[in-house]
Design a protein around this nucleic acid. Sequence first.
RNA 1: CGGGAUGUAGCGCAGUCCGGUUAGCGCAUCUGGUUUGGGACCAGAGGGUCCCAGGUUCGAAUCCUGGUCUCCCGACCA
Length: 494
Amino acid sequence: MAVELKDLTKSEENYSQWYNDLVMKAGLAENSAVRGCMVIKPYGYAIWEKMHEVLDGMFKETGVQNAYFPLFIPKSFFSKEANHVEGFAKECAVVTHYRLKNDENGKGIVVDPAARLEEELIVRPTSETIIWNTYKGWINSYRDLPILCNQWANVVRWEMRTRLFLRTAEFLWQEGHTAHETREEAEAEALQMIKVYQKFAEEWLCLPVIVGHKSPNERFAGAEDTLTIEALMQDGKALQSGTSHFLGQNFAKAFDVKFANREGKLDYVWATSWGVSTRLMGALIMAHSDNNGLVLPPKLAPTQVVIVPIYKGEEQLEAARVKMNEIADALKAKGVRVKVDDRDNVRAGFKFAEYELKGVPVRLALGQRDLANGTIELARRDTLTKETVSQEGIVDYIVNLLDEQQKNIFQKALDYRNSMITKVDTWDEFVDILNNKGGFISAHWDGTPETEQAIKEATKATIRCIPLDVELEEGKCVFTGKPSPYRVLFAKSY
RNA sequence: CGGGAUGUAGCGCAGUCCGGUUAGCGCAUCUGGUUUGGGACCAGAGGGUCCCAGGUUCGAAUCCUGGUCUCCCGACCA
């Protein structure tokens, strides 16, 4: 594996290139034969699996249960919620036939025109419609509520331009779909889940996020309110990393899902949906990586500690092995994910570079000198520093160090993010900051979709969110000069 | 769907303008040897429908015509 990851400049022009190289060289994913689709390789999938496991546990703590719904959605279901169709119609894959046959006048296989489906099936871009069609049969009374279901699935959105993990034609995600008696309960659910996402992003991915409401322009198709977690990447662009929607009674009305309430009257059910995807992998990569490769938060890293022997000849290797296994066993006993790399066909220097590329948090190197002195060389990935430490007490030292790295990686990302939120009061400043600094711009906005659209057309920046903890502050819209009650966050985004 | 570029070994590329040895280079792979505290070195070997189809020519990776793929810039989007 020859790897060159030089020339990381946090500028727009080559950050994309650099990101792509990193994803492929670190062995996370690659483009597939199918345009716009991605192959997630074992190392990348191991990280995703860990995310899946942790999130799943967090959902279950709130009372959510997993279920599974079909991949295919009849076209008629799709058209029932007007905004929803409009939002997704342009990127749907459609199944029209169910059979192939041998070509009559030639070679190869063709679609059998006789096997046309009476009603086309949409490959789900999201599952609200099929799920609400199902919920109709599950809900009669307030006693059937709430319903709190989540599904882990793949979805397809036929995007024009794709990027590994950030935007692929098919992606893996989880989508929660809940049904409630009251508006208040549904709104509380949507808020609760966005906070679960925030906690996961910050405590596991070391990814500081801003929680807020989407503006009407950026809202999910069919939602009354969309809550989002917005993260900032190292090139100064924002990434929407998870969303939680309050759907009101829109889908209940579209699918005629009524229940008998506590007063004995029929009412439509209140709904939420919420999801995060393999895009979180992209966020993880773009938030922390450096010129040597990935930097993985220890809590998420498939391998937390790697031990590399330095030796000449089989005899020395064997001696190193004994000590390495002893240390590895002691670490495993404390729940540390550790790997001993005693491959004899690549050199130590090669292994060092490889594990840095893959973002392994702690690397130990054990040579003859160390065996004689009872020491070991320890390198930490987040700071790229090396020190020689005693073998005695190494386990506790590493357990603490992993914890420290988790905090350090978060803190570094947080400091960067905070330094990239700029308050702006004039249009000139707005344009200047956007072009020369990037990051979030905190500015007044008159609250109209037209103004947001005009700003987008002028600068490519959109409103990323109206933060939950926004402070009321009289001001003037940075674009139109009309009155504004609070600041919102603008940024260029992925 | 508009604008631009590209397709040559597993990967990255040169050669194409101006047709002419056996199509070449780096990385990777395999064999042998020497090495080994930060991505080793030397020697040798294997690996090609030069995107597809048709045409021009004594002769095409190279010129012509038509197709097609991928990538980049827009519009669209988690």
